[in-house]
């Protein structure tokens, strides 16, 4: 179980999160919505303990991760994997080497097995033909697919985290990425792999998530399902959703 308890974080004097609290299960499919700079990505970084809160507690399966050292955090982080906005592929390595990276580091598989696994993963995300390309030769959508494949190669995460997975992509590619995200979290709870997607793209979030949390001024001002989101009384949230649907 994941619990944020009164989490507050400021960068210099800018308070990004202000006493944020929520709970989620590892099989949940959540979407954090909000405008730029509202702390959506920070939620993901806090969940992985890549940044520490100024106050509050973050509990993962009953353990407060805000107090753990880097080595103590390793088993916690293995429960998750993340796909960053631009993919965060290692730019000096080819797609094959990027996806194989973790498997090579772990040293448990032979080179032949790694190569086969890399091909399987790339086939799954639909870019097997790009296996020998360098990250700069990939389109935005392909970079994210490669990043998803690399994240899957890291192990068997219980929850996938996505940072703006469809931002900057054309509608068709965004839809394909959405389908891939849905596929990776398919199944029925509690057996399925959960996902948290942070985005300002309501349509993409609606396609892959069941629960929606809206961040405004560092606080969660909405927490509910899709019908609740679309019929909200919150004028600010209404404007946010309407603006995005109008744009589309």
């Amino acid at each position: 179980m994941i619990e944020f308890q009164d989490v507050t974080l400021a960068y210099n004097s800018n308070r990004v999160l202000d006493r944020v609290s929520f709970t989620a299960q590892f099989w949940d499919r959540l979407a954090f919505l909000g405008g730029s700079g509202e702390g959506k990505t920070t939620i993901l970084k806090l969940l992985l303990a890549l940044v520490r809160p100024d106050s509050g507690r973050i509990m993962i399966d009953g353990e407060d991760i805000t107090r753990l050292s880097e080595s103590q955090l390793r088993p916690i982080r293995r429960k998750f994997t993340i796909v960053f906005q631009e993919g965060a592929l290692f730019d000096s390595l080819s797609v094959r080497e990027n996806v194989a990276y973790c498997m090579r580091e772990q040293g448990a598989l032979s080179e032949e097995d790694i190569d086969e696994e890399v091909r399987n993963l790339l086939r799954k995300v639909g870019i097997e033909g790009a296996i020998d390309l360098m990250p700069e030769e990939l389109s935005g959508g392909m970079q994210r697919r490669a990043a998803i494949a690399r994240s899957m190669a890291a192990g068997e995460p219980r929850m996938m985290l996505y940072d703006e997975p469809t931002t900057g992509l054309d509608p068709l590619t965004a839809e394909n990425i959405g389908d891939l995200i849905s596929e990776l979290s398919a199944g029925e709870p509690p057996d399925r792999r959960g996902s948290i997607i942070v985005t300002h793209d309501v349509t993409a979030a609606a396609r892959v998530s069941e629960r929606f949390l809206y961040l405004k001024n560092g606080r969660i001002t909405f927490d509910g399902d899709l019908p609740g989101l679309l019929n909200t009384d919150d004028e600010e949230l209404k404007k946010f959703i309407d603006a995005l649907f109008l744009l589309r």
């Binding site: 970084k45 992985l48 890549l50 880097e70 080595s71 390793r74 982080r77 293995r78 998750f80 994997t81 993340i82 960053f84 906005q85 631009e86 965060a88 592929l89 290692f90 730019d91 990276y101 973790c102 580091e105 890291a154």
Partner: peptide
């Protein structure tokens, strides 16, 4: 800045 260091930490590397 490209989150590659974050990725290494997520992968459990020192």
């Amino acid at each position: 800045l490209g989150h590659q260091v974050d990725m290494l930490r997520v992968f459990g590397m020192d």
